[in-house]
């Protein structure tokens, strides 16, 4: 049997997040959160993953726990020496991500990761975002110690999470990935934490 392609049928993905209950709070805050859970992403792990991605023109962060913007809306996270996630931040790079996943099938020492379906993804923007994180995260995510390109794998609002800071034409932003089963709780917790920053 052929391997199931995890990037298949992106138009059928549906976020289970209920945004209506937090809308009033979210509108007042200067910190803007966007649910990017259904946007395409792919993960690869294994000793051959770095060479595989490089051979497909993906820029690779040099050290674990670093990220970089490969193209305008493509972010590459290096979560360990041999684990990489590629994220389309505006869902415009689906074709490229799917092509990578198909190309990885059968490549020795490259294993696909189920990060599309296992994790929720939020994008947070606003100058006060780092101060909001101070309330819910033990790691210092302020700009002087957590610059663009940094990755923290830690606990946010008591949920295991991956946080990275990146930049695009509209300014700096944070991407947050957390277990998809906790998505509603985490969205509400972060909206609540952000509410004081008007």
């Amino acid at each position: 049997m052929d391997l199931f392609n995890l990037s298949a049928a992106p138009d059928l993905r549906k976020s289970m997040l209920d945004l209506a209950s937090t809308k009033a709070k979210a509108t007042r805050s200067s910190i803007k959160m966007q649910d990017c859970t259904v946007f395409s992403r792919a993960g690869f792990r294994g000793t051959g993953a770095e060479a595989f991605l490089a051979s497909h023109g993906i820029a690779i962060p040099t050290k674990p726990n670093e990220s970089l913007s490969c193209q305008a809306s493509l972010v590459v996270l290096r979560l360990s020496r041999s684990e990489f996630w590629i994220i389309s931040t505006d869902n415009s790079e689906h074709a490229k991500i799917e092509a990578l996943e198909v190309a990885a099938m059968g490549v020795e020492n490259v294993y696909p990761l189920y990060c599309q379906h296992s994790h929720a993804c939020f994008m947070l923007t606003g100058a006060e975002t780092e101060n909001m994180f101070s309330k819910v995260c033990g790691v210092d995510l302020r700009n002087n110690v957590f610059p663009v390109g940094a990755v923290a794998q830690t606990s946010v609002a008591r949920t295991g999470a991956i946080v990275t800071k990146q930049t695009h034409a509209q300014g700096d932003y944070f991407l947050l990935f957390a277990d998809i089963a906790s998505v509603q709780y985490l969205w509400e917790a972060l909206t609540d934490a952000a509410a004081e920053f008007v």
């Binding site: 360990s80 923290a152 794998q153 830690t154 606990s155």
Partner: peptide, 17 residues
């Protein structure tokens, strides 16, 4: 909170381990 030093991620709260 007790701190443990993770070789990959640096110092973290012990509750993460």
């Amino acid at each position: 909170m007790k701190i443990m030093h993770c070789p990959l991620n640096g110092p973290r709260n012990i509750s993460e381990f």
